[in-house]
Amino acid sequence: DWREIAKLAEEALKKQQPVTVNGQTFNDPNEIKKLLETAQKAI
């Protein structure tokens, strides 16, 4: 669910920690931002 992904990505950016989505881990803040943008577009 994109809403859940957006929430996870936002928290990861705030806490500056990696986030795992669908078994894929994102460590890079730039990648997390991209993930968040993608999720927000999909909602």
Rank of each mutant, 00 (worst) to 15 (best):
E11K: 07
L13W: 00
A39M: 06
T25G: 05
N27A: 06
V21Y: 02
I43H: 05
R3S: 15
K14D: 11
D28W: 05
K7F: 12
P29M: 14
E11V: 06
K34D: 11
E31H: 05
E4C: 02
V21M: 06
T38E: 14
L36C: 03
P29D: 08
Q17S: 14
D28K: 01
A12Y: 01
K41D: 09
A42M: 13
K14R: 13
K33L: 14
N22D: 07
P29V: 12
N30G: 14
Q40D: 07
E37F: 00
P29R: 08
N27L: 13
I32A: 02
E10H: 04
D1E: 06
E37N: 07
I43Y: 00
K41I: 13
Q24P: 02
A9F: 10
L13M: 09
T25H: 14
A6K: 08
E31N: 05
G23V: 00
K34T: 13
A9K: 00
G23P: 01
F26I: 15
G23Q: 05
A9E: 01
K33H: 11
E10C: 12
I43G: 07
E11D: 14
D28S: 05
R3G: 15
K41S: 12
A39P: 01
E10Q: 07
A42E: 12
I32M: 03
R3D: 12
K14A: 15
N30A: 15
I43E: 07
P18F: 04
V21W: 02
I32L: 09
A12D: 02
A42L: 10
K34Q: 15
A39D: 03
W2S: 06
I43Q: 08
E4L: 04
K41E: 11
P29E: 11
L8F: 05
V21F: 04
Q40T: 13
P18Y: 03
N27T: 09
E4V: 05
A39K: 02
W2E: 04
L35E: 01
N30E: 15
E4F: 01
K14V: 14
N27P: 06
K15D: 10
N27W: 15
A6I: 12
W2K: 04
T20E: 09
E10D: 10
T25S: 10
N27M: 11
Q40G: 07
F26A: 04
D1P: 03
L36D: 02
D1S: 09
T20N: 09
R3V: 15
T38S: 12
K15E: 12
L8K: 12
K41G: 10
Q24F: 06
Q24E: 14
I32C: 01
I32S: 00
E11Y: 00
K41V: 12
K7M: 13
D1K: 07
E4I: 03
V19G: 02
L8A: 14
I5Y: 00
W2V: 06
A39G: 03
A6L: 13
N22S: 09
A12I: 01
V19Y: 00
R3E: 15
K14C: 11
N30D: 13
G23L: 04
N30Q: 15
A6D: 02
V19K: 01
K15N: 15
A6E: 10
V21I: 15
G23F: 02
W2N: 05
K7G: 09
Q24S: 10
A9I: 15
I43W: 00
P18D: 08
A42P: 04
D1A: 05
G23M: 04
L8Q: 09
K33T: 11
L36M: 09
A6F: 06
D28Y: 08
I32H: 01
E4S: 03
N22M: 13
T25L: 12
N27H: 11
N27V: 15
Q17T: 14
I43F: 00
A9S: 05
Q16K: 12
A9H: 01
E37H: 04
L8E: 07
L13R: 03
A42V: 12
N22H: 10
Q16A: 13
D1N: 10
D1M: 04
A12G: 10
E31I: 11
W2Y: 08
E4T: 08
G23E: 07
A12S: 07
L13A: 04
K15I: 10
T20G: 03
L13H: 05
T25N: 09
L36F: 08
P29W: 10
K34M: 11
N27I: 13
T25F: 12
A9M: 11
K33N: 09
K41H: 13
P18H: 09
E37C: 03
K34V: 13
P29Q: 11
K34I: 14
V21L: 10
T38C: 12
D1L: 04
I5F: 01
E31Y: 08
D28A: 01
T25D: 09
P29Y: 13
N22E: 07
K34H: 12
W2Q: 05
A39I: 11
Q40V: 13
E31R: 02
Q40N: 14
V21K: 02
A39V: 06
W2P: 08
T25A: 10
R3A: 14
K33W: 04
E11S: 06
N27D: 14
Q24K: 14
Q17F: 13
E31S: 09
N30V: 15
T38Y: 06
L13Q: 05
L13C: 04
Q17L: 13
D1W: 07
E11F: 00
W2F: 07
L35I: 11
E37T: 07
I32R: 00
E4H: 04
K33I: 15
A6V: 14
A9N: 01
E31G: 05
L8W: 07
W2C: 08
N30T: 14
N22P: 02
G23K: 05
V19Q: 01
L36R: 03
L8I: 12
T38A: 09
E4Y: 04
Q17K: 11
P29S: 09
A42T: 09
Q24G: 07
K15Y: 07
T20H: 09
K15Q: 14
Q40W: 02
R3I: 15
I5D: 02
K7S: 12
L13P: 01
T38L: 15
L13G: 03
V19D: 02
K33Y: 05
E31W: 08
T38P: 03
I43M: 06
K34P: 01
